[in-house]
Amino acid sequence: MLFTFINSLTLGMAVFLVAAGLTLIFGIMRILNFAHGAFFMLGAYLTSTLIGDMPGSIWVLIGASMLSGLVVGVLGLVVQHFVLSKLEDVDEHFMLIATYAVMLLCVGAIKMTWGLEFHSVDPPPGLDLGVVIFGTFVPSFSLFIIGAGVAVFLVLDHVIHCSWSGKLAVAIARDGWMSNLMGVNGPLGVRMVVGASFALAGLAGGLLLPNQTLSPALGDTFLLMAFITIVIGGLGNIRGAFIAAIILAVIDGLNILFLPGFPGVLIYVGMVTCLLLWPNGILGESRL
């Protein structure tokens, strides 16, 4: 039972890693970014090219993930410059479909570069075994993902709520016009946050790479789960996303224990219930 919940918590934190960037870009630009899953996948493919099938150590994995995060972040700036910034004043549905188009472009590029076949990457030495906690065998790679999720959450939360640049970003998100009047460079701030959001997608792709089967359909699975997470938690709300990821993990664990014939069904039921009880998410919608 503990094993089940650790597994589900690993899934929850993995989803949070993807959802963090998604909620960030929603907070600053009010965009539901369909392309996020594709860029997450791009991060995974880039990392796999960098480290090969057998990563040398944990640090190689983390370093390669950060590097591909950086590359994806720069690509995000390109997308922001040529697509997103041109659509700020039109109906929100156009933005939704524009990100869908960017997703298609990204998936197409991945299929052309890396082909359709499945890849898999082993966890680095030190993470390929397991530890025994309270008499239960726990894969150490699960602990690594849970740790990574918590670390990313703490860093983001600190940056957004305690640092100067984070507060500026919040100001831009809440009232861009007013903060421009106060001498804040709004467009630059938006660019930084969008870049950070895409970079998070790339980083998440790299960190979650081991133990995944890497195929061009990887992005969709995570994207939908991440959507659900940020909707339950409250769009644009990083703390909400973290709590929602844990709730999803618990629901998924219950699903495996009590409804093993229908894997993945309870999550959708839980999400619909949450959305009807709290239409704006558990912690409410927030602008960062």
Binding site: L87, V90, A101, L104, A109, K111
Partner: peptide
């Protein structure tokens, strides 16, 4: 054409949204 299909579809969509709404 593996991959090109998505790229063409995506590019057409983007062109429609950005230029011929």
């Amino acid at each position: 054409l593996v991959g090109i299909q998505e790229i063409i579809t995506g590019a057409i969509l983007l062109a429609v949204i950005l230029a011929f709404r």
